[in-house]
């Protein structure tokens, strides 16, 4: 999942970025309003974390208002030191999806970001299921047929992304756009490599295989309307 962090306080940026990346998020950072505006319009982020007091623009809310009127529907989490009740109301009413006050607990920030991600995929249950595969998005654990599968953050992110788009083809560029930040080197086969790693960990000793390849299009996690061919493959 790719997150845009618009925040002018360097220590916060540093900490949040590190924390989110360690949780498998791809994090883009903008330190002022103009930069944030550009980035938000350019990329379809899963979540934008928006500070309210921003340099170079009047206010984070102004930015948000512009986005909403421009039809940008990205989930926005306001992260602000303005904790007053009217400020929170104003933030939510302007179009923010969530409002978190500084100082905040990082776990809460994470949880809220995850919740926003789930909401973006109309997924209420934090546990994503696909046949005998269970992905606990809160604990970030994966089980296949009851067995815990250990995944790296990247692998997990990829699996989660696939799981959120279960039954739908996910193109490589989609994966790229959502799982890698602006600084990652775009090497063409990196997605394929990670798909292979995932398959090794999830599908190798289990049946049916859940990660399907659509040639020329991308990958998909097997959906309910896509029943496994019995005994198709060992």
């Amino acid at each position: 999942m790719r997150v845009l962090l618009i925040e002018d306080s360097a220590p916060i940026v540093r900490a949040v970025r590190q924390g989110l990346e360690e949780e498998g998020f791809a994090v883009d950072v903008a330190v002022d309003g103009e930069e944030g505006d550009v980035k938000a319009r350019a990329t379809a982020y899963d979540v934008i974390i928006l500070d309210r007091m921003l340099p170079k623009v009047d206010d984070g809310l102004t930015l948000l208002k512009k986005w909403r009127s421009a039809g940008i529907t990205t989930h926005v989490l306001m992260l602000t030191a303005k904790t007053q009740f009217p400020d929170r109301v104003a933030g939510l009413d302007t179009g923010a999806d969530d409002y978190l006050c500084k100082p905040f607990d990082f776990s809460e920030l994470l949880a809220r970001v995850r919740a926003l991600v789930r909401r973006g995929h109309q997924q209420k249950d934090p546990v994503l299921r696909c046949y005998d595969l269970e992905i606990d998005t809160a604990a970030r654990t994966v089980r296949r047929a009851g067995q815990v599968v250990h995944l790296t953050p990247r692998e997990y992110a990829l699996l989660e992304f696939l799981a959120f788009h279960r039954g739908k083809v996910v193109t490589r560029s989609m994966i790229w756009e959502h799982l890698y930040d602006e600084y990652d080197e775009n090497t063409s086969n990196v997605v394929d490599v990670y798909i292979r790693y995932l398959r090794n960990k999830i599908d190798k000793n289990f049946d049916p295989p859940l990660i399907l390849t659509r040639w020329g299009e991308g990958y998909m996690l097997r959906g309910d309307d896509d029943p496994p061919a019995p005994k198709k493959e060992k």
């Binding site: 220590p11 916060i12 949040v16 030191a81 905040f104 990082f106 920030l109």
Partner: peptide, 24 residues
Amino acid sequence: ADISHELRTPIAALMATLDVALRK
């Protein structure tokens, strides 16, 4: 409000830094 805002920001930074550091 200003004071609280100005105070919140470094405190938030501090907390975030510590939280992240302590996560693993």
